[in-house]
Design a binder for these strands. Structure first.
Length: 816
RNA sequence: GCCCGGAUGGCGGAAUUGGUAGACGCAAGGGACUUAAAAUCCCUCGCUCAUUACGAGCGUGCCGGUUCAAUUCCGGCUUCGGGCACCA
């Protein structure tokens, strides 16, 4: 057969499409598999990363379909977001037009790869219907107290009149206009993900087997749970007086209560309320005020880089155990968001405190002794050890001291054991146009109220001016003016739109529901209960934290709101590696991209898919190699060519294995090894590269034998195994040879693995010296005798002290 | 700095619970077919020394250990990649 991928691929894509081959069944009594590759952002054209992502997911989906599962393998578009607005500014197009044109183009590109998507369930997150349900979910969350408004510091560009995401700030300057970025207090909406911090941590146990360990550990670090003591520092009389008795005490948090006797000062974050009071009442000299204001101006990122800085505030607190007076400082390294925005400082046993104390000449007291190293005044000792200089708690191990000191505080009501998390609530407000409007209304009478459900969706206006300055929704002449749903007076609509991670946090639930039900609900309960969780999720490692954590959070929230019974969205996660060329990531700016379209045009989709699955295991980085692509093409051509050796059958031919010549026996063994491999690969790690190698070996082995029946059997099976990887050619060949009857579960014929003769390695002291062929049922004694005979020359003048026999593997002779 | 993950030929990569290192492919070299080229097919291909021999030695980042046997397990390094980054 002459291999003509262009013709074959078009033919089968059309056939699959017209016959709805890949649509899931709504019969929920069947066993299901939900296979999902992360949906793409419609940036314009697909790239090799997409090809890899979708080839992996597609292979898995096709495999399960062939094994008889009801498979959901959907696709959609993560279609809100900034690039559409940037394109609008640059090309004077409308974001909507740009986005939906890109979707149309990319849909065709994905189509040309022959991906087995459930096309009837496709949607874009910018579709008003999606927005409608999403805004409803938002309101449910708001009503449950999971959404709140607060003001916090964000990156603000004065020239562009907009908030910038952290990644849009380069060297402290705006990425577009080079203006210095400021920190500006902005009101915004926050989702209370911190309320689920512990649940997110606890449920990671269920993901241990299905998720890569590094993703779990990244999430664990991100959530950042720590246990410690929270207690109050009471201000001394003079200080309270100085603060007009507005403050009596403040709270600090420590994970090292065992070092509490080493406290020599306390430090407040520049944003701490006590400092506000000091400034407002002119209790600090002007240069100090100026310095504090400067500290506050520095963004979180730059603050982490900055030198330690601070100054004494002229107030003191009382050490809760010693009663000693301790000076209070302001320090730029203390974060207002964490642990009350204040710390007890133990310079002897904390590096930051030490650095600060050294710079400002503050006193240092050692309270822990570690036998390996003694405090020498040059650096802090942060290890655990034994308490010294610690009053009644002296002489305890760190862990004992922790326990007893916490117990002491709790007994006297001076403090308590608490758990803190680094995880912060999720700010979802964006001052942009191309996003889902936050469905809230500011009413002069009722305050902040959600839009009425029957008025959803709050849709975006189409007639907007997008010039990169300010929020187009704010500038729109009429859009924001509305009526309060409660008191019916004139009110103002919220002009913030949602972070696009909001859309991608529940799209996988929407897919579970037949499109005929999309009008009424976000997703159908029975459908989501049937399809959830996603059995295999496939996507880039770059989403290890944010997207995957948000999606986990949403799933729990939606469960608690009664929408689903799933607690975790993704049972198994495969994070695919990047596609590289010349050692670095393919990117337009580096000019090292390979266009998938041109590869498909030149070699066909099957070749592209085969190469990308063969070149590396899915989780690893993949180095693009043009000549290896040609190698993949050659293999498919060879496969197609060998169909001449095959006669048309409908079932596996009956073969008397014992009567075959050795070459044919070997070929059958190779074929069934490949089938076995296929079963392993799809249930354990998806090493498609080894599966493809096994198929190549099998085809090679078939090629050196001539038995017609063995050829037909081998081909029948090989097409079955390869269908998930190179579907077009397999359907074409299977159609002409087997009437597609071979795309089903095939039993392994164990007889082909029974061999009369086994080859054993003979090693001496573990070093291979010979190979022997022995009858399968040969006795140990016979085998050792034969092995010694074969290795006679190595045994001269040696004393044999031990003989080891590993069945089917080797014989080891230990000599001295 | 902390956390995680790697390191195997010229290259991408294979190797059940420790049991014949280098499968499969790419590149390279040689040959067949052809007027020629392409395509296809066959052979060689870890390194070193030998080339009388189906020869020997060395080899999975480095050093050491456990074992009859280590790419695999343990301890200590080197190095590359990724993530987090003053979270008290």
């Amino acid at each position: 057969m002459v291999y003509n991928p262009r013709e074959i691929e078009k033919k089968w894509q059309k056939y699959w499409d017209e016959n709805g081959i890949f649509e899931p069944s709504n019969d929920f009594s069947k066993e299901k598999k939900y296979i999902l590759s992360m949906f793409p952002y419609p940036s314009g054209k697909i790239h090799m990363g997409h090809v890899r992502n979708y080839s992996i997911g597609d292979a898995i989906a096709r495999n399960y379909r062939k094994l008889g599962f009801n498979v959901l393998h959907p696709i959609g578009w993560d279609s809100f977001g900034m690039p559409a607005e940037n394109a609008a500014i640059k090309n004077k197009t409308h974001p909507k037009k740009w986005t939906y044109e890109n979707i149309d183009y990319m849909r065709n590109e994905l189509n040309s790869l022959g991906l087995s998507f459930a096309k009837t369930r496709e949607f874009a997150t910018s579709d008003p219907l999606y927005t409608k349900h999403e805004q409803n979910l938002f309101i449910q969350m708001y009503n449950k107290g999971l959404v709140y408004q607060k003001s916090s510091k964000l990156n603000w560009c004065d020239t562009c009149q907009t908030v910038l995401a952290n990644e849009q700030v380069e060297d402290g300057k705006c990425w577009r206009c080079d203006n210095l970025v400021q920190q500006r207090e902005m009101p915004g909406y926050y989702l209370k993900i911190t309320a689920y911090a512990q649940a997110l941590l606890d449920d990671m146990k269920e993901l241990k087997n299905g998720w890569p360990s590094q993703v779990l550990s990244m999430q664990e670090n991100w959530i950042g749970r720590s246990e410690g003591l929270e207690f109050d520092f009471t201000l001394d009389e003079d200080s309270q007086e100085k603060l007009n008795h507005k403050f009596e005490k403040y709270t600090v948090f420590t994970t090292r209560p065992d070092t509490i006797y080493g406290v020599t000062y306390s430090a407040l974050a520049p944003e701490h309320p006590i400092i506000n009071h000091l400034i407002e009442h002119n209790l600090l000299d002007p240069s100090s005020v100026e310095k504090i204001k400067q500290m506050r101006q520095v963004g979180a990122r730059d603050r982490a880089m900055a030198q330690k800085e601070g100054l004494a505030l002229g107030i003191n607190v009382i050490h809760p155990l010693t009663g000693k007076k301790i000076p209070v400082w302001v320090a730029n390294f203390v974060l207002i968001e964490y642990g009350g925005g204040a710390v007890m400082a133990v310079p002897a046993h904390d590096e930051r405190d030490f650095e600060f104390a050294s710079k400002y000449g503050l006193s240092i007291t050692q309270s822990i002794s570690v036998n390996t190293k003694e405090f020498d005044g040059n650096c802090a000792i942060c290890d655990y050890g034994v308490t010294i200089n610690s009053g009644v708690f002296t002489g305890l191990s760190s862990s004992q001291a922790k326990e007893q000191i916490i117990a002491h505080f709790e007994k006297y009501g001076k403090g308590k054991k608490v758990i803190n998390y680094k995880l912060r609530d999720w700010g979802i407000s964006r001052q942009r146009y191309w996003g889902a409007p936050i469905p809230m209304i500011h009413c002069p009478n009722c305050g902040l109220v959600p839009e009425a459900i029957e008025n959803l969706p709050v849709a975006l206006p189409e007639d907007v001016v997008i010039d990169g300055e300010g929020n187009p929704l704010v500038k729109h002449p009429t859009w924001k003016h509305t009526i309060c749903p409660t008191c019916k007076t004139q009110a103002i609509r919220e002009t913030d739109t949602m972070d696009t991670f909001f859309q991608s946090s529940w799209y996988f639930l929407r897919y579970t529901t037949d499109a005929s039900l999309w009008q009424e609900s976000a997703f159908d309960r029975a459908s989501s209960d049937y399809w959830m969780s996603v059995d295999q999720y496939v996507g880039g490692i770059e989403h290890a934290i944010l997207h995957l954590l948000y999606a986990r959070f949403f799933t729990k929230v939606l469960r608690d709101l009664g929408y689903t019974n799933a607690s975790e969205p993704f049972e198994n996660l495969l994070t695919q590696g990047m596609v590289l060329k010349d050692g670095s990531k393919m990117s337009k700016s580096k000019g090292n991209t390979v266009d998938p379209d041109s590869i498909i045009k030149q070699f066909g989709a099957d070749t592209a898919r085969l190469f990308i699955l063969f070149a590396a295991p899915p989780a690893k980085e993949l180095e693009w190699n043009d000549s290896a692509v040609e190698g993949a093409f050659r293999f498919i051509k060879r496969l197609a060519d060998r169909s001449n050796n095959v006669s048309k059958v409908h079932t596996l031919p009956q073969i008397d294995h014992t009567k075959l010549p050795d070459t044919s026996k070997y070929a059958r063994k190779k074929v069934y090894e490949a089938l076995k491999k296929s079963q392993e690969v799809f249930t354990n790690g998806y090493a498609f590269n080894t599966l493809i190698a096994a198929c190549m070996e099998a085809l090679n082995a078939l090629g050196v034998q001539e038995d017609k029946a063995v050829w037909s059997e081998g081909y029948f099976i090989l097409l079955n195994i390869l269908e998930p990887i190179i579907p077009h050619i397999c359907w074409e060949l299977s159609d002409s040879l087997f009437d597609l009857k071979n795309f089903t579960k095939i039993q392994i014929q164990e007889e082909v693995f029974d061999e009369a003769v086994v080859v054993l390695a003979v090693t001496i002291n573990g070093k291979k010296r010979a190979e022997i062929s022995v009858a399968k049922d040969a006795s140990k004694e016979q085998i050792f005798a034969y092995a010694k005979e074969e290795c006679a020359k190595w045994l001269v003048d040696q004393t044999l002290i031990k003989e080891i026999f590993v069945p089917n593997k080797l014989v080891n002779l230990v000599v001295k």
